[in-house]
Structure formats: structure tokens, C-alpha cells
Computed example of a mutant assay.
Amino acid sequence: MSKTFWEAVKARRSIYGFSDEKVVSEERIEEIVRDAIRLTPSPFNSQSTRIVLLFGEQSKKLWQVTLETLRKLTSKEQFADTEKKITGAFASGYGTVLFFEDQTVVDGLVSGFPLYADRFPVWSQHTNAMHQFVIWTALEAEGLGASLQHYNPLIDNAIQTEWGVPASWKLVAQIPFGKALAEPAEKQISDIDARLKVFR
């Protein structure tokens, strides 16, 4: 990694413009994803997060599928803006990470630990979010721009069909990435003292 952990955390932002120029190898990105899957914590060590990693034409296909799905659901006026955003900000990148939660694992925990049954779906989202953060930050550390998107559940069925994803995998989020071409907008940060209590 070219940045320290905290440098990457501070620099990680939503980027809405990137190219498909290879900043690092596909192998390095796959290594990052594999390490995230192996090392990111999960409730009861459930390891329920599943990931599909798409490069090149496969990534572009995902965003074409997304466009065609949205074309059927939005007005012509709305679709023009949507098409511009997806084509210029997501489909133009180097790849996309798709994040899922395996409901078979979550349902098994619900059955196995009835005292916590109502919490496991929530905790499942927690581990997925941690995977998203780890991978997004690691991509930033390697010099890649990215953003977190949520086009589910609109594209769930199309993804299952196109890439043979098991029906038990529930899509949670998408991270398109590539060489950043745009600077992020200025981030507004609310008062930290209003969000933090410290007792000594």
C-alpha cells in the first residue's frame, strides 16, 4: 500500500468520475478482496459476506444491465441524468465490487441462537458494512477512486441470472472503482463534540 491506514481513511471519499486506466494490477485488487474476506470480523464468526469482483467488460456489463433496468422504471427526463451519471461515473471505471450477504448463513444463526434471532439480520449488515469500508479504504490506499452505490434490489434478479449468483445471496451494495479523474466535493462535518461523549 502506498498510504498508511489513517492516510487512506482520511483520503477515502466518494469519487464520481474515473477512467479504466490500470493503476494497480487485477491480481493486487483480488488480493485486497481476498484479505478483506479473510480478515474482516463477523458476528459469531459467521463469515456471511459474499463478494463478486468484476473487471473490464464484465464491470461495464453490470452497469449496462443497471441502465436497462432503470430505463424501464424512470421517466425519459429522469433517465437522461441517470444515464449520464452511470456512464460517466461508474461504467467508465476499471471494475466493480458487488457485496452480498448469504441468507442461508444468517437464517442458520437465527435458528441456532433464538435468543438473538432478531439481531442476526442487523449484525449481518454490520459485517457487510465493515467489508465495504475495508475494501473501499484499501482501494484508496492503492491510489484508486471509488464510491459506494445501492442499486439493489432493482438489479438483483439480473445479477443472479447474468453471473450465476446463488438465490440465497442478497445484494447489499456496489463499489465501482477506477483511476480518479475528479476531485471529491467538500465534505461537511458536523460538530464532533455533539457526537462524542468522553468520561474519565
Score class of each variant (00 low, 15 high):
residue 59 S to Q: 01
residue 178 G to F: 00
residue 180 A to R: 07
residue 129 A to P: 00
residue 95 G to S: 10
residue 166 P to K: 00
residue 160 Q to G: 06
residue 174 Q to N: 06
residue 84 K to T: 10
residue 65 V to W: 01
residue 146 A to R: 01
residue 138 A to L: 13
residue 181 L to D: 09
residue 7 E to G: 04
residue 152 N to V: 08
residue 115 L to K: 12
residue 178 G to S: 07
residue 142 E to W: 08
residue 28 R to K: 15
residue 154 L to Q: 11
residue 159 I to H: 00
residue 3 K to C: 06
residue 178 G to K: 04
residue 31 E to F: 08
residue 143 G to M: 06
residue 151 Y to H: 11
residue 137 T to H: 01
residue 42 S to Y: 00
residue 47 Q to W: 00
residue 198 V to Y: 09
residue 48 S to E: 13
residue 109 L to E: 05
residue 102 D to W: 01
residue 38 R to G: 04
residue 10 K to Q: 12
residue 189 I to P: 00
residue 53 L to Y: 06
residue 84 K to Y: 11
residue 8 A to E: 05
residue 47 Q to I: 02
residue 151 Y to C: 06
residue 191 D to Y: 02
residue 186 E to R: 13
residue 21 E to F: 04
residue 6 W to D: 08
residue 76 K to V: 14
residue 44 F to D: 05
residue 100 F to H: 02
residue 49 T to Q: 02
residue 97 V to Y: 01
residue 115 L to C: 01
residue 116 Y to K: 12
residue 82 T to V: 14
residue 147 S to R: 10
residue 50 R to K: 14
residue 1 M to R: 09
residue 72 K to D: 13
residue 25 S to K: 09
residue 177 F to H: 04
residue 158 A to N: 05
residue 182 A to C: 05
residue 159 I to D: 02
residue 200 R to E: 14
residue 26 E to Q: 14
residue 27 E to C: 05
residue 181 L to T: 12
residue 75 S to R: 12
residue 99 F to N: 00
residue 21 E to A: 14
residue 147 S to I: 10
residue 193 D to Q: 14
residue 3 K to N: 08
residue 13 R to N: 08
residue 118 D to L: 09
residue 69 T to Q: 10
residue 59 S to F: 00
residue 54 L to C: 03
residue 67 L to R: 03
residue 161 T to D: 11
residue 116 Y to M: 13
residue 195 R to C: 14
residue 69 T to Y: 07
residue 94 Y to S: 14
residue 26 E to N: 15
residue 77 E to L: 09
residue 154 L to N: 08
residue 26 E to D: 15
residue 167 A to S: 12
